[in-house]
Every structure is written in structure tokens, then in C-alpha cells.
Write a protein that binds this DNA or RNA. Structure first.
Lengths: 218, 218
DNA sequence: GAGCACCTAGACAGAGTTGTCTAGTCGGAG
DNA sequence: CTCCGACTAGACAACTCTGTCTAGGTGCTC
């Protein structure tokens, strides 16, 4: 809370969803810390896991953490930022495989279906992290709102390509289904939620998309 | 964690959704503690708020807390249990005003719409609380799963009354919309999510309900 | 008036937290 | 060889947290 050395750029994610940041291949201690933080913070909660556990898992010294990130909070936001990036890459790559907007949208829910079936799945990292933090004024909120607006923008854009009447509204509803799937699957420990959300999305698209268009012309 | 005096009955909620438990009108310190816990834990998170803050807000001595509940964790589960009860009562009362199953289901989303517009709204208390706790083996999980299954059962039952083909599936999807609305509204600080969820629910019911039935005969 | 249930005030133990600081190791570049 | 940057190991300060325990007050009933 006092000095805050590096990690100010953290908020510059958003958009560049290609892969492997061109900035600089970060050193080793940083990567080890981020990996350990990703495992522990997600699995047990940001608050529950102390710094000592993280550095022990990472196999680095405490000074390395504070030289690299400056504070625990900065490590947390870095962890969330990386997670957001990974998720956005997974979505865009999977979506790129489909040609038609409708299939692209549904493919996003296939990503969710796969995600929630993974062994350590424990719900949405952003929802979880922002449930723990102070109400405002922390970096966590920033990453959360930017990730959520990214997802909503993605769905809105694809809805626009589909040619629906109100892309913003449809995008918001698809994002709601996305959130509902991830959170429900986490809470109920039941991956079926992803397929339910996919079916609801298909239903929404059937109702909103103009039936005439048949030639794919993005 | 050591002794655990009272509060073992906490899990006996579920079902009796009438009002005012017939057991015994609890003493004053307990009520004050529950009220303070409800405000602070929900607003700032279970982990962030310490015992001292709770007893200060409640205006009771620390010994009263430990005599009444036995531990912080027991207070947390009591807080969640009470919250679940309140929510279930609000839902059942609002639903009772409608005659047709379809309107009952949509009325549940009106409750959400009203809920997310309230000043201190900060998402789903159960999602938030279970994001903070240990992965398993705590009372929080118990309250969460029981509340969630109650909600899903409610929607399933109403779907059955509506006469859909697969009430379980429709109920699960309505519950997913419910969760999605509450969590999205909390994360995005945007109450519109409730209306989106309501619209999606209406769409789902239109698609699933048999069109023939016109006489309301529950 | 005595006894009793219920309450308050607050010191304190013991553990856990983040963050700082010293001292030292190691591998390469000049 | 020497310097330098990046790292390790871990002691330590300065908290905060839960939970316990003593000491005492207040209002009720018998």
C-alpha cells in the first residue's frame, strides 16, 4: 500500500487478444509467482491465501514478490488480468473457427461448457475476487468491469453481425446467460448449466434474428 | 471452532416459508447481532469484516456473540440462513398474488428487479459468501446449496403447473436466469439485468408451454 | 433481599497477516 | 577479477484476527 513499484500497465489489456504479448518476455520469478497465484487464489480465494503460501508454492523468496509486484493487491490484479487475457484468447480462437455469426455466438457457450467441466473449476474468478474486496477503489474492480464489458462487447458485435434489431440488448442478454452459466455451474457443482445457457442463447437468437438472411456475408 | 454451543438447528430452514418462526422469539442480543452481521457481511464481505466491527455495530459485548453463536463461522451461517429465509418469504408472498403459473414465474423476476434496485445491493450474498470460504466442509456451503435447490425446486414446480414437457429442465433454466440476473446486476452495477432475465424467461415459457391450455386450472 | 439469567467492558493469548530489511549466493559482462 | 543485477533465506516489526476469561452490572422472580 506504501510504495507500489511496477505493475501500473496492468490495465492496458483489453483488445489485444492475439497471443503472447509483444512487450517483453518477463523473467522467471514473475512467471512462477503468477502461476502460483493463479492456482492458489482461484482455488481458495484471494483473502484466504497468504503471501507466504504463494511464495512457497512458487518457490521464490518474499523479496522477489515485493520487488516484482510491490504489494499483494498488485499481485492479485495481475493474476486477474492474466486470467482475463487467457479467457479472451480462448474465446476469440474458438469463435474464429466458425464462419456464421450465429455459430460464433453458440461457440462461446461451448467454451463455457468445456471450462466448467475442468477439474478445479470453482466459478467465475472475477465474481469471486470482487466478492472479497473492498467495495470500491481497488484494482480488482477495474479488471472486472473491463473484462465484463469486453465480453458484452463481443456478444453485441456478433449480434450486430447477425443482424438483430437491437444488438446492444441482445448482447447484454447473451452476456447474462454467460455469467449465469459460469456462476451456476460453480455454485451447484453442475456443468449442465453451460448447456442450458447454450440452449437459451439459441432460443434467443431464433427469436431475434431475421429469418430471411441466408447468405453468410458477415 | 472449539466448542460450538448453540446454533445447530440452523440448517432446519428450508420449506417453512410462512412467516415468523413458531419456535421462540429470540432474545435481543441475538437479533442485534444478526442485524449487524447482515448489514456488514453483505456490504463488505465476510472475511473483511471482523468480529469487533460486528459487535460494535450491534452494540453488544463480545461475550454475547460467543455465548449466542459460538464462533464467527456460526454467525456467518446464521446470517446467510436468515437471508435465505427472508428471500424465500419475499418470493412466495409475491408469487401468491398471481393466479396463473406463468405470471407466478414472471413475478419472481419482478422481485429480482426490485431487489437489485435497492441502495446497498451488492450481488448474491450466497455467491459472495461461498467465494470467500474454504472449498468445502463449512456451513456456508450447506446454506448455499439448500437455498439454490429451493429456488430451483420452486421454478420446477411452477413449470410443472404450467404444463411444460420437462419441468426439471425448464426449472433449472429459470434458476440460471435468476442467478444470472442477480450476479450480473451486482457486478455491473446495472439493474437492467433483471428485466433482461425476465424477458428471457418469458421467451422460454412461450417456447416451452403448450399453447392449447387456456383455462387456468393450476 | 437472594438468586439467577443475561448482559457489558475489556484485557489478553495465540495465531496469522503484510511488508521491510539485512546478509548472502550465483552467473555472467566488461 | 570485479562489479552488477537478480535472486534466496529468513528475521522482524507492526499490525489484525478469533476466541477466552475475569469482573461486574441490571432486572426479574421467588
Amino acid at each position: 500500500m506504501t510504495r507500489q513499484i511496477g505493475i501500473v500497465k496492468a490495465m492496458a489489456v483489453h483488445q489485444k487478444t492475439t497471443r503472447s504479448a509483444p512487450e517483453k518476455i518477463e523473467g522467471s520469478a514473475r512467471e512462477k509467482l503468477l502461476r502460483a497465484a493463479g492456482e492458489l487464489f482461484y482455488a481458495e480465494g484471494v483473502h484466504t491465501v497468504g503471501i507466504d503460501r504463494v511464495i512457497e508454492r512458487a518457490g521464490v523468496a518474499k523479496a522477489s514478490l515485493y520487488n516484482t509486484f510491490g504489494s499483494k493487491e498488485a499481485l492479485v490484479t495481475a493474476y486477474l488480468t492474466e486470467r482475463a487475457q487467457t479467457r479472451q484468447e480462448a474465446l476469440t480462437q474458438r469463435i474464429a473457427k466458425e464462419a456464421a455469426p450465429r455459430e460464433k455466438i453458440l461457440a462461446a457457450f461451448d467454451v463455457v461448457a468445456e471450462l466448467v467441466k475442468r477439474p478445479g473449476f470453482r466459478g467465475c474468478a472475477f465474481v469471486n475476487a470482487s466478492a472479497e474486496g473492498q467495495p470500491d477503489a481497488d484494482g480488482v474492480r477495474g479488471v472486472c468491469t473491463s473484462t465484463r464489458s469486453w465480453t458484452r462487447a463481443l456478444f453485441t458485435e456478433l449480434s450486430r453481425e447477425l443482424g438483430v434489431r437491437e444488438p446492444e440488448r441482445v448482447g447484454a442478454r447473451l452476456a447474462l446467460l454467460y455469467t449465469g452459466a459460469v456462476v451456476s455451474a460453480g455454485m451447484d457443482r453442475n456443468p449442465d448449466a453451460a448447456e442450458d445457457a447454450r440452449a437459451l442463447a439459441a432460443m434467443l437468437l431464433d427469436a431475434e434474428a431475421p429469418k430471411r438472411t441466408r447468405r453468410a456475408r458477415s
